[in-house]
Deep mutational scan, measured.
Amino acid sequence: RPMNAFMVWARIHRPALAKANPAANNAEISVQLGLEWNKLSEEQKKPYYDEAQKIKE
């Protein structure tokens, strides 16, 4: 299954978030990633939607 825009973004940002929160488990990191993603504007998300579309094609 191809990655969606959030997954493209999260793949880039997960390592830094995990390093900054070494005690957090994957579920907690995923929740935090979701919160951070939701704070982004549509303009900030656009490159990730574009990349996800390329992956689908």
Rank of each mutant, 00 (worst) to 15 (best):
A23F: 14
L17K: 02
L33E: 01
E42I: 10
L40N: 00
M3L: 13
I55H: 08
N4Y: 08
Q32M: 15
D50P: 02
A52R: 02
N4R: 05
S30N: 14
L35Y: 09
A10Y: 06
M7D: 15
K54N: 07
P47F: 07
A27P: 03
L35I: 13
K19G: 04
I12L: 09
K54W: 08
E28T: 08
G34P: 02
N4S: 15
P2E: 15
L17H: 03
A20K: 10
F6N: 00
I29M: 03
P2H: 14
L35G: 03
N4K: 05
P2L: 14
A18Q: 14
E43D: 12
P15C: 14
R11V: 13
A16T: 09
K19C: 09
M7N: 09
A24F: 14
V8S: 03
P2K: 14
R11I: 12
L35V: 09
R11D: 14
F6D: 01
N26K: 12
P15E: 11
G34D: 11
R1V: 12
V8H: 06
K39N: 07
E42N: 10
E42H: 10
I12G: 03
W9C: 03
K56M: 15
M3Y: 11
A20M: 11
L17G: 01
I12M: 09
I12R: 07
E28Q: 10
E36M: 15
P22Y: 02
P22S: 04
P2A: 13
F6T: 00
M3R: 07
W37N: 00
A18E: 14
W37D: 00
N38K: 12
W9N: 01
I12E: 09
F6L: 02
N21W: 13
P22A: 04
E51Q: 12
Q44M: 08
D50Y: 09
I29Q: 02
R1Q: 11
W9Q: 01
Q53C: 09
K45I: 02
N26A: 14
R14Y: 14
I55A: 08
R14L: 10
K46H: 05
N25Y: 03
E51V: 12
R1F: 13
V31M: 12
R14K: 08
Q44N: 04
Q53S: 10
P15L: 10
V8F: 11
D50W: 08
L17I: 14
R11F: 11
L40A: 01
L17N: 01
A5D: 01
G34T: 15
W9V: 01
E28N: 03
K39L: 10
K19S: 08
A18H: 10
R14A: 11
P47K: 05
A27K: 11
N4P: 03
S41T: 13
A20E: 06
E57Y: 07
R14T: 04
N26Y: 15
N21P: 01
I55R: 07
R14N: 02
M7F: 11
N38E: 11
K45S: 01
P47M: 05
A27F: 13
D50I: 14
K19Q: 09
E36I: 14
N21D: 05
N38I: 08
A52V: 10
E42K: 13
P15H: 09
L17Y: 12
V31D: 06
I29V: 04
E57H: 12
S41F: 02
A24T: 03
S30Q: 12
E28C: 06
N38P: 01
K56V: 10
S30H: 11
K39S: 07
N21L: 09
E51W: 13
Y49K: 06
P2R: 11
Q53D: 10
A20D: 05
I12P: 00
N4F: 08
A23M: 14
S30G: 08
Q44S: 06
R1M: 13
M3Q: 07
W37Y: 01
I55L: 12
Q44R: 05
P47N: 03
P2N: 14
A23L: 13
L17W: 07
A24Y: 12
G34S: 13
R14G: 12
H13Q: 09
R14C: 14
K56P: 05
W37H: 00
K54G: 06
L33Y: 00
M7T: 08
N21V: 03
E36G: 04
W9A: 01
A16S: 08
K39V: 05
N38M: 14
A16E: 11
A5C: 02
K19I: 07
I29K: 01
D50Q: 09
Q44G: 05
P47W: 09
F6K: 01
A18S: 10
A5S: 02
A16L: 15
K45W: 02
P15W: 09
L17V: 11
V31K: 13
A27Y: 15
L35D: 06
A10H: 02
A10V: 09
N21F: 13
S41G: 04
S30A: 13
A23I: 07
L33C: 06
R11L: 14
N21G: 02
K54I: 07
A18N: 05
H13G: 02
N26W: 15
L17Q: 03
E28K: 04
M7G: 06
I29S: 01
I12W: 04
R14M: 09
K45C: 01
I29R: 02
I55F: 09
E51T: 09
A5M: 01
R11W: 09
P15Q: 09
D50F: 10
S41D: 06
A16N: 06
P15T: 08
V31G: 03
R14Q: 06
W37S: 00
A5Y: 01
A5G: 11
Q53N: 11
Y49S: 04
K46F: 04
A27R: 12
Y49F: 10
Q53F: 10
S30R: 11
Y49A: 04
E51A: 15
S30F: 14
A23K: 13
H13I: 08
K54P: 04
P2F: 14
V8I: 15
A52W: 12
A20P: 01
K39E: 05
E51P: 02
R11A: 14
W37C: 00
N26V: 12
I29E: 01
L17F: 14
Y48I: 01
V31T: 10
E51C: 14
L40F: 03
P22R: 05
A24N: 03
Q53A: 13
P47E: 05
E28S: 06
A5P: 04
L33T: 01
V31I: 14
N21I: 04
I12N: 05
H13V: 10
E57F: 07
G34V: 15
W37P: 00
K54V: 07
D50E: 13
F6A: 01
P2V: 14
Q32L: 15
P2S: 14
A16M: 13
E43Y: 08
F6Y: 08
R14E: 06
K54L: 09
K46T: 04
S41E: 03
A24K: 11
Y49D: 03
I55P: 04
I55D: 06
E42A: 12
I55M: 11
L40Q: 01
R1K: 13
P15V: 10
Y49C: 04
K56W: 13
E42C: 14
E42F: 14
A52S: 05
P47D: 03
E28H: 05
A20W: 04
W37V: 00
M3I: 14
A10D: 07
E36K: 08
A52G: 03
A18D: 02
N4C: 15
M7L: 13
E36C: 12
P22G: 03
N4H: 08
W9K: 01
V8T: 03
K56G: 08
Q53P: 02
P2G: 12
W9T: 01
E36L: 15
W9P: 01
N26Q: 12
E43P: 06
P15F: 07
R11K: 14
E51Y: 14
A52D: 02
A18K: 14
K46A: 08
V31F: 13
Q53H: 08
L35R: 09
V8P: 00
W37Q: 00
K19L: 11
V31C: 12
K19M: 11
V8A: 06
M7I: 10
E57W: 05
N25E: 04
D50R: 09
R14H: 06
W9H: 01
P15N: 08
P47V: 07
I12V: 09
N4A: 08
R1W: 14
L17T: 02
